[in-house]
């Protein structure tokens, strides 16, 4: 939902970033207000996943210029865990497996770290079990997954559900979902998208990083951005995604060539 007077949650200005000295982001500008859903689309290598990692603070990505303000705070002054506690959430494209660490315990520690910042009381083991069981419904997840190690041996779909479960528990202000649709069959996609829709409110915002239109059939974005060569090349409404589906990304090359970038 677009409301011009809603709180500005995320303000990305001329953002440049590199991996191992290779520049990937070359001047990204983006503003996200409360209540909005943004889709960032683009081909592989366009920089969209890098954008998500930089926002969450992955140590392998180095910010080389520009700024990001999260609720008027300098995001880059915060450690990754601080960002998470303040409500920045990254849904991973490939959630990692952590053998030996119980999923339930992990979810509880993470939830309590966020709750402390929210001023809510800490949940003990018993209270948390009740709490998490409610949230399982959001992604129709089998409670058996709570007893296992974090993501260990989970199928692609189960891992993504576990991501959205974390999102439900952490109640983020800005959620960045990196290719959450990749590797999902249509049923799993609907469940995951349904979860995201249930969690979207007028107070938070979602940034969907995706390759394909099909996720946007399930989650209606307010804005669609097309990234190429480390920048946002074009911004439009949801019709831009539909247009992309019909015309593909060929026009991107032409436009880049015209700009002398490609």
């Amino acid at each position: 939902m677009i409301r011009p007077d809603a709180e500005l949650l995320l303000e990305i200005t001329d953002l440049h970033a590199a991996v191992e000295d290779k520049p990937i982001l070359k001047g990204v500008n983006l503003q996200v207000r409360a209540g909005e859903i943004h889709a960032v689309m683009g081909r592989n290598g366009s920089g969209k996943s890098t954008l998500s990692k930089v926002l969450a603070g992955h140590p392998a990505y180095r910010v080389t210029g520009g700024s990001v303000r999260y609720r008027s705070q300098d995001l880059f002054e915060l450690e990754p865990e601080e960002r998470a506690r303040l409500g920045v959430f990254l849904g991973f494209q490939y959630p990692v497996e952590i053998p030996g660490v119980s999923n339930l315990e992990f979810l509880r520690v993470a939830t309590n770290a966020r709750r402390e910042k929210q001023g809510s009381e800490e949940l003990d083991t018993f209270a948390f079990e009740d709490h998490v069981r409610e949230k399982l419904a959001v992604v129709q997840m089998d409670p058996a997954f709570l007893e296992r190690s974090v993501n260990e041996g989970f199928s692609g779909g189960e891992k993504k559900r576990n991501e959205i479960l974390q999102m439900a528990l952490l109640e983020p202000v800005v959620s960045i979902l990196d290719e959450t649709d990749s590797g999902l069959d249509i049923d799993a996609l609907r469940i995951v998208a349904g979860g995201v829709n249930q969690l979207a409110t007028t107070d938070n915002a979602t940034l969907l990083i995706t390759h394909y239109q099909r996720l946007l059939d399930e989650i209606t974005p307010d804005y669609v951005h097309v990234m190429a060569a480390g920048r946002i090349l074009r911004t439009g409404g949801r019709e831009l995604a539909l247009e992309l589906e019909q015309t593909g990304y060929d026009w991107v090359d032409k436009e880049l060539a015209a700009q002398g970038v490609a």
Binding site: P59, E81, R85, F89, E105, A113, R114
Partner: peptide, 17 residues
């Protein structure tokens, strides 16, 4: 990074693992 991005501090993340 995965644990940190869920609000779990670096030391606690190491000790959890």
């Amino acid at each position: 990074f995965y644990l940190q991005s869920r609000g779990i501090g670096f030391e606690e993340a190491v000790s959890m693992m």
